[in-house]
Write a protein that binds this DNA or RNA. Sequence first.
DNA 1: CTATCAACTAGACTACAGTCTGTTTTTAAT
DNA 2: ATTAAAAACAGACTGTAGTCTAGTTGATAG
Lengths: 205, 205
Amino acid sequence: MLESKKKQRRGEVTRDKILKTALRLFSEKGYDKVTVDEIVKKTGTSKGSFYQHFSAKSDIFLVRFTEVDNYYLEVFHSFPEDMDPFEKLFIFTQKLMRFLEEEMGKDLMKVIYSSSLNSKEHTYFLNSNRSLFQIIFTLLEEAKDQGSIGTDQCVEVISTMVTQSLMGIIYHWGIHDSDQSLESLSIPLMKTILVGLKMKNKKQD
Amino acid sequence: MLESKKKQRRGEVTRDKILKTALRLFSEKGYDKVTVDEIVKKTGTSKGSFYQHFSAKSDIFLVRFTEVDNYYLEVFHSFPEDMDPFEKLFIFTQKLMRFLEEEMGKDLMKVIYSSSLNSKEHTYFLNSNRSLFQIIFTLLEEAKDQGSIGTDQCVEVISTMVTQSLMGIIYHWGIHDSDQSLESLSIPLMKTILVGLKMKNKKQD
DNA sequence: CTATCAACTAGACTACAGTCTGTTTTTAAT
DNA sequence: ATTAAAAACAGACTGTAGTCTAGTTGATAG
């Protein structure tokens, strides 16, 4: 009954404490105004503990970022059966963008995008991208089955295109200081691609 | 006559020596296997000199990266007058991708993309992007004048879409280990967008 | 109950980018 | 030529992420 907390290993408690404290500090002062030393001091632990549970400072954000996976699936399963797959895909990407900006935040996204370029590991990010890719793939396959895709390229290639676009939109947003929302910044490109996918190779006449 | 070298300021000589040595070391051992201390030691200078001429270690790559600007313009001016603007744009992006992979290299591109996310300065990159944007803008304006764009969105927005896509393609390539060339990885998305731009809002019939 | 071993913790230590301060060299003005 | 200001330079110093090693705790097996 109360076991859930009692049985929690000593290490898990420490890990949670570090995670929560770090995230709070990051959101209060910004990621690069917070040092690992400050985190462990405020947590009453030590560097040794920190790196026992996390592989790097950025790992804190990475762990938080894995929550998107759940959100992906939640949105994916919320669509009515009979909805047009292209519409599903469009709505999916819009909700994703909104979620990333509002729940994750730009600071986090920049750290994720930056650290993924550096480390050879960045397992979380690639995994998240795999599950994102999987959902996009499923939706596009559905579209293909219905014959609404106007190109004979395989779904894998098309899914990659969509992934590339999403990354580009996010990256572009990350390096610019626009007051527009990520969601609104993503609309033109996403719409254009979807049009392009429907039309491709079907010369208009 | 020989003045060009003689009159070169002492500082310029040092700067050049550091730049060349650093680039050589980066290409020999990889960017993050080279330390600034090693660079200045091999150059026979000092940290003070290094940071007199460069604002950061990554600045070395940033300086090299500015060469793309010349290449942009060179390609841009090489197109025959009467070529279809969409074709120009497509060829332009393909040549750009090939250039970035072959002349700049993945190591450099990753550093550029990563450091642009961190610093608040990254002037070079944003400048290069501005001149890239300018060329894309010009080509798309040409297309719009010819009435070959099937949407009434302003050219600014459309240019942003293309920029987002290019960044996404490059970023995606940066974090994955594919044996395909950047150029070939970029073809599907670029083609789809161009189709989408031609078609958008023109319901087929 | 004790021994063993793995998970965990502490904090000193290392590596390295970037800063700071003081010195030397160059340039420019008088 | 003298001198003042600016540019260039040297290298010691600082800040911080991440490592290493030695010690502690707690679970499990005998």
